[in-house]
Amino acid sequence: MTDTARPARRALLAGAALLALPACVAGEMATQRVDPRNDRTPIGMGLDNRDFEEAARALVRSMLESGRLQPRPDGQPRVMAISRITNDTTLRINTNELTQLVSVELNNSGRVVTTTAVGLDGPADPLAMQTRQLRQSGEFNQRTVAARGQMIAPDLSLSGNIIQRSTRVDGGAMRVDYVFQLNLTNIRTGIALWQGQEVISRVGSGRTVMW
């Protein structure tokens, strides 16, 4: 064998060894803490907490801006119940994440309070209703038990959708639009008091699915 041929053969041997190795040796990343106020961690094609916050922020801003959330005639804030928010995306989303952010922000604004005693699939907090059963109990000071007719019925209902639309863009990349739609319905009249839409978009690799 000539001297020049030797490195070539060695390379061949190395190449063969490489072929035989599984191609899945990935470096482990050390865990890091994320500061929510200064979160500059990379994003993916799916949705993360930042997107829910952004959508909720923009939607609540639009709601308050609309000027339609006037107080009740007695000067008290409006009472909102959470209706159905349909997740029509390919991501496993707990829509409570969105409604919680929206209702907290609305509560903080002083314009709207949320009832947890009425909900589409039963109350968010069933205890408010259950404690009424203490009216029969001799063990409880009846003056501390909620009397009849104390609960306040909602006059607003919050419903909506999260929709996903995917499109291929030039160069084989993928664009995904996540559309957050919310409606605030006046329960008394059935008329939408406010409707809003916020779109969060991503462009990224079309190699694999976004979930």
Partner: peptide, 20 residues
């Protein structure tokens, strides 16, 4: 809710697969 998500995934896969 998550059955719907899986069905959306199914559609998404078919749509993107055809081209890719």
């Amino acid at each position: 809710d998550n059955a719907r998500v899986e069905m959306n995934r199914m559609e998404e896969r078919q749509a993107r697969t055809v081209q890719r």
